[in-house]
Design a protein around this nucleic acid. Sequence first.
DNA 1: ATTATTAATCGTAATATTGCAATATAATAA
DNA 2: TTATTATATTGCAATATTACGATTAATAAT
Lengths: 110, 110
Amino acid sequence: MGLTKTEIFTESQNRIALFAKVFGHPARVAILQHLFKINTCVCGDLVNVIKLAQPTISQHLKELKSLGLIKGNVEGTSVCYCIHQENWTHMKETMFQFLNQDEIKKEGCC
Amino acid sequence: MGLTKTEIFTESQNRIALFAKVFGHPARVAILQHLFKINTCVCGDLVNVIKLAQPTISQHLKELKSLGLIKGNVEGTSVCYCIHQENWTHMKETMFQFLNQDEIKKEGCC
DNA sequence: ATTATTAATCGTAATATTGCAATATAATAA
DNA sequence: TTATTATATTGCAATATTACGATTAATAAT
């Protein structure tokens, strides 16, 4: 059905999945890496750096923004995007807790 | 088009996206959490724990296995699934490097 | 005012994902 | 052999995602 049954999972599980999902596309990975690399805000050059059409980049940016991982400031005719530091830190805590589960039990069985 | 243009991204970006994608569904998050919680191998009880049909669980397990994050040992009529520790550790390194990008430049701009 | 420039939105085609019923397969039990 | 049990596979319907051309909106420059 293509429709995820979010109601049968916990808040936490759904939150982890939502963050992971947004990282589940190389274009969004590349966008974030670029935003981190350029310490001054990047505007439309993402379209030049990443070889995807402008509407496609815009769409990916929207997803990152709707999750709160980036913010965009309008600056004249262009828009200045950058990482939302606090939210990124919060997201990291969530993801680290999930990824570090193996720290508790290192036994393994089969 | 629904088709990701992997060829325009780096190996690294695609690898990060692939790992993230598999975590991008709450069922797979729940499966992994359960496999970590039960220190002895879990077999078919995933279907009881997670309220999804058996073929659906089986499909999610397949995806986790194809990425190497879990392994399954046939044990009589049932299959014993557990975390692939080494691969999990490798995956963590990849993801941590991505998630910890903010450690380098904490400036922010807008 | 007119004309660039930049980015968002709309519409749409192609493809992917999710979920399950039905069925198949494989190993054990009776 | 014939159930029984556990898991995998197939096929399919519903929905989501990706990508982009065309268009729009908003500001800047001339």
